[in-house]
Design a protein around this nucleic acid. Structure first.
Lengths: 108, 108
DNA sequence: CGTGTAAGGAATTCTGACACG
DNA sequence: CGTGTAAGGAATTCTGACACG
């Protein structure tokens, strides 16, 4: 009836920090790398959506596997296209390989 | 999969103010009257859910019609029982009567 | 590359109270 | 009853930078 709660930007960085377990520095860094796009209030405070929070968690998981921002951004675009809630599956496939750099094209 | 976005308490009073158009004073007053129940962060900052925001708007509409907190609280309990998204309908019925006080039992 | 930190400022939020009605 | 406001304090958030690697 009204809006899409999941994509509405209303969460401040402090809450995002608690929700994701990431540091403010890490959260802001992802914005700098163009991986998330929080809005700003009149005075400049960042506001995130639940969607952003989910994305941040996914990014953190990939980064732990050694994937760089550069690659993560590409994967996110691909995910957006195949419209599947699949990053979960790919993550499991990657786990065990020890380093994601060996995958340059995982269409195999 | 994860949580219920609509009921998750993550919005600060400043954002609620913008979302509802109410003053901070009015928002806090509704808590004092036991009409909404925000959570608190470690340091005491209030956090509201989208649900709270919706409730606040409904409360504001009723109050404009002259309904007192006392009555509003009763109506909210009743609404919770009849599980219908009906406050919308009742509101329209009331509109035109000019004063809600004449209704003590609208089961007619 | 990704992240920690100290630095200084600006804006937010909180409570209790006085006020009007 | 419902809401405005000034008051003073405490915690948040922001940016640019230095650091390590």
């Amino acid at each position: 009836m009204t809006d899409n709660y999941k994509s509405k930007k209303v969460i401040s960085i402090g809450v995002v920090k608690e929700l994701t377990g990431l540091s403010e520095r890490q959260i802001r860094y992802n914005e700098q790398r163009k991986l998330i796009f929080p809005e700003r209030t009149a005075n400049g405070t960042r506001k995130y959506s639940f969607s952003d929070v989910e994305t941040l968690v996914e990014i953190a998981e990939k980064r732990e596997e050694g994937v760089q921002s550069f690659e993560i951004r590409k994967e996110m675009l691909k995910d957006k296209k195949s419209k599947e809630g699949d990053s979960q599956m790919r993550r499991k496939m990657i786990r065990g390989q020890l380093n994601a750099h060996f995958r340059s094209n995982d269409r195999s």
